[in-house]
Structure formats: structure tokens, C-alpha cells
Design a protein around this nucleic acid. Sequence first.
DNA 1: GAGTGGTCTAGACCACATC
DNA 2: ATGTGGTCTAGACCACTCA
Lengths: 237, 237
Amino acid sequence: MEKISLGYQSLAATFRYKVEEGMWRIGEPIPSEASLAKEYGVAVGTIRQAVAQLADEGVLVKRHGKSTAVSSGLNGQSMLRFFRHQLDGQRQLAPSAMVLDLKEIAIDKNIAKLTGWSCKTLLKIHRVRLVDGNPLLYEMIYLPLPKFKKFLGYTPKDFEDLFYPMYARSCGVAVIKAKDQVGFELMKKADAKVLSMKEGHPAVRVNRIAFDLTGKPVEYRSSVGDAMAFQYSAEVN
Amino acid sequence: MEKISLGYQSLAATFRYKVEEGMWRIGEPIPSEASLAKEYGVAVGTIRQAVAQLADEGVLVKRHGKSTAVSSGLNGQSMLRFFRHQLDGQRQLAPSAMVLDLKEIAIDKNIAKLTGWSCKTLLKIHRVRLVDGNPLLYEMIYLPLPKFKKFLGYTPKDFEDLFYPMYARSCGVAVIKAKDQVGFELMKKADAKVLSMKEGHPAVRVNRIAFDLTGKPVEYRSSVGDAMAFQYSAEVN
DNA sequence: GAGTGGTCTAGACCACATC
DNA sequence: ATGTGGTCTAGACCACTCA
């Protein structure tokens, strides 16, 4: 095994590969910087630079005093917090979620184009997100099917409130990034029914593509809710 | 002058201070890393770490082969690109902007709360952003007044299409970050008139607070447009 | 060619978490 | 006490920009 690698960028690529191939498993610690330095025959500082880059990308997580680990991904609370809730004094909010339906479908041409997925079938999950029992968001979630086949045997009540941690635990998929597109439309009949609203009511739609550790799209999600209750926050840099 | 500073974080704070106080001026190069190392009696690597942190924050800009400089800020095209334009084949889009009005006003209580500004008066600028001559966005821009007093003598036609570079050049203010809030409402009469639309039409409102090199709010902007033509993109990490 | 930042080394010592 | 990552040093050499 000759080493062609030169420089911390190649090392970073090597480490990224280890994560992709599952040699470094999600949520688990990687070898110490000192041992990696020995293994690759470089100075510790060089290892540190490579690790720092991956930590920047969200692939690795550094923990002072403990080992560096492969990221387990976002926790998935990132959707509901975008709604403005009518603040009833200091009362606690009780967000929850409910899966209405799941089924295997043929891949949608539009979704295939957006995600670049080459699989033949998808798992389509309908669910509602609620606050204090009131339905706020109606979500359609599409997952590529070889990868998420474990969910095929699930029933609606087997799903947890937060999906992303469940992806990590059950399917070995860590979501570390997502791209949202926010648009407005008039509510369709089917959506209105689920949300107990009138057809034609102003609605917001958020289409999201979520990415895993390797930068590949692993989820497509289309959510609809009451435009009047919606507020989206973002930073521009 | 004794040095109490220890570590690259203190150095970063020192450098940030130099930028705040104008000792390092926006758009201009800072001393080389070697000379800074000598000046502060630390190793070059330590200087590099401090500089890297500020570069990360967008305060400094590194340029391989040339000197590191204080950032001149964002270029301000970050608003209009959020609309979906009906693509007429491969035709080029021609975005532009027009200032309708500017005046000095007493500070708005709500804006004061959002920005933390303690000044007494603001400059309020109305402008329209157009694509191919069609009004798409109606913006109200609020600027704190000691800082932007130079604009008091301007007439509408003195303003350029992109505001942020103009802030930098004319007022020494570099915008490097902003926070957007996207919400939905029904169009008010005054807004509808400017945009050639009907009152009560679905409208999107984007409220933005823009921050300068020192992290202080320097602009409040409220923009309204046709919700049906709007699309907002953001990344979640 | 002179000056800048970018990469890398081989150490030292510090700060934190854990046993 | 041990092992981890965090900070720092004092060099060396490389890569880029520009006069």
C-alpha cells in the first residue's frame, strides 16, 4: 500500500471516504490525532488541519478532552420553530407529530430531477405536525428506497416525533445539511382538509432537500401550512 | 503600554477593535502576519489563528499572495434573487432599482427595539426594485442618522442600484451579515399602488436587519412583494 | 525577485474528561 | 493518572501576486 497522498486536503478526502464507506461509523469516535499522525506518517498539525475541515463541514464533531466523533446529524427540530405561535402567556408549547400514512410509490420524475436519485421506488410518508394538538403543518416526506427499506415494515405509531435522529439510528443516515425553498400558494383541498382549513386559504409551502454526511440528497420533503401563522427566519452571510 | 493579552482569542479581539476604531480601515490591507507576529511578540502561527477566526466571521478577507484586508462587505444582490422570474426563453434579466423618496423621521419605537439603536432620528428611504421595468419589490429602508448623515444631501437619482457597496464607499459601513424574517400578509393599499397590484392581494414581507463588521445593526429594511411570484431559498446547517 | 499568505514539522505545555 | 483535543513555538519550504 503506497501512499500517494500529499497534504491535509488529501487527508480530509481520505477521512471523508472512511465515513462514506462506514469504516468510521456515524456517532462513533475516530482514532486520536496522535495515532492518525503516526498511521499516515505526518505531523499532528497536519492531521488537525484535515480534521478541522471536516468538523467545519459538519462531518466530524470535536469534543475537547474526549475523542472526535463522526456526526450523528441535525436533530430535526428545524422545521416547526419557523411558525409563530400565539403566545398564551408563559404557557409551554407541546409540539408533536403524527404519521398518517406510508406507502411505497414509483419515483416521481420531478423529485428524481431535484435530488438526482436513480432508484426506482420511494417511501412516501404523510404526517402532520401539531402544537398543543392543533395541526400546523402537513408534510409529505419522500425517502429513496433501498436506503430506507427498514421503514417499510413500520406502522404509523412506530415513528418518532423527530425524524432525523431516527434516520441515523434506524437507517445509518445522518442529515447534516438541508436546503429550503419557501413559496406561497392557495391551499389545495386535500391539504386544507388535513389542516382543518378552507380550500383556497393562503398557504406557505416549504420544499426541502436534506443532505447526509457525504453531501448526497437523502430526503425530499414538502410541507404546507397556514401562511398567516407562518414566519421563516434565516441568516445571510 | 503593557500587554495583558494571552492567546489568539485576545489577539482576535484586539484586531476586531482595530477594525471598529477605524485604525484598520474597510477595504484596506492589514499588516503582514510576520510583522504582526513581531509587533505582538508571538509566533506567526498564533497570528494566523487570530486572523483565520476573523476571516471566518467575514471581518477580514485573506488573499493568497497579496495582503489580508478588512472586508468591504456584501454586494447586496441578495434580495432580488429570491424572486422567481418567469423565464422568457434565455432572455437576460435587467434588474434595477429606483429611489422614490427619502426623509428624516423620528425613530420608530418598534425599530428601536429590534435594532437597539439609541439615536433620535432615522433616514427613511422608499425604493422600488424592478426587473425589466416591472416593479417587483417595494422597500422601506431605515438608517440610523448620525452614521448615514451623508445621504441627507442626496437626491433620489444620486443612489445606486446596490446599496451595500454604497454604504461602504460613502459612509464607511460594511455590511457583512443580515437576518431575514419572511412572513405573509395581505397587501396594503399604499404598497399595492406602488407595485401596480390590488389591495388585499397575497403579499410576502421580508424584514431584514443588517449588521456591520462589528456585529452592530446598521440597517433595518422591510420589503413587500407579490407572494405568488416569490420564492425564498436558504440553507440549514 | 521580493513580499505575501499556505502548508508542514517536531516538538512543548495546557485544559478537559474519565477512570 | 492517563488520554484526548487546544494552544503555541520557531523554524522550513511552497505557491501566489506583482513590480
